[in-house]
């Protein structure tokens, strides 16, 4: 019997791809073959539109597939200038049919961008109102193996359900979102 792709990742760019793929595969022990990252554009600035354009299509595919195979749809979008709540509503709207409480659709929404989380994991005290500093400082780290250790440490804490020390609010919300799929990851 052929194996199934079970976690579909719709994200904006390579930094998202590296973060999520590493998070799932190393400490959670998920087979790389079970993580399918939807190809994203390479130019900077198109990622947000890419996620919003694709979400309805991926949502439809998820729901049609989920009737016969356990699947997770993981969507990563930077909040940029918006609040995490606004982006969540926007994604719900673009999804067509809003998420059901028991659907394994997860929104990961860093405030401004994921480099702020990398800064936090590196030990910086993070201010989520800061627009560009973290991207400038951690842009290359987030796209490369240099972030692996940081992501691994987060994955370990997440797996052990250990509390984070003064985390940025958007990361707290992402942890709460993650609870939607914790059971599905454990039972796989």
């Amino acid at each position: 019997m052929s194996k199934a792709s079970q976690i579909i990742v719709l994200c904006e760019d390579r930094a998202h791809d590296v973060f999520v793929t590493r998070f799932l595969t190393r400490k959670w022990g998920i087979d790389r073959r079970d993580v399918r990252v939807v190809d994203y554009p390479r130019d900077e600035g198109s990622g947000r539109r890419h996620v919003e354009d694709k979400i309805e299509e991926e949502g439809r595919a998820f729901r049609s597939r989920n009737s016969h195979a356990a699947t997770i749809l993981l969507i990563v979008r930077d909040a940029d200038e918006n609040s995490v709540g606004d982006v969540r509503d926007r994604l719900d709207e673009r999804l067509g049919l809003a998420r059901g409480a028991d659907e394994s659709i997860v929104y990961i929404i860093p405030k401004w961008h994921i480099e702020a989380w990398i800064a936090y994991l590196s030990g910086d005290s993070v201010d989520e109102d800061e627009k560009s500093e973290y991207k400038k400082r951690y842009g290359n780290v987030a796209k490369s193996k240099d972030c692996h250790g940081l992501v691994d440490s987060l994955a370990v804490k997440c797996k052990e359900q250990a509390s984070l020390d003064d985390p940025p609010p958007s990361l707290v919300e992402a942890c709460q979102e993650f609870e939607r799929i914790r059971g599905a990851l454990r039972s796989r």
Binding site: D39, P41, R42, D43, G45, S46, R49
Partner: peptide, 9 residues
Amino acid sequence: PVTPGLTPA
């Protein structure tokens, strides 16, 4: 070359 909005392939 990069085309805005398109994947490399």
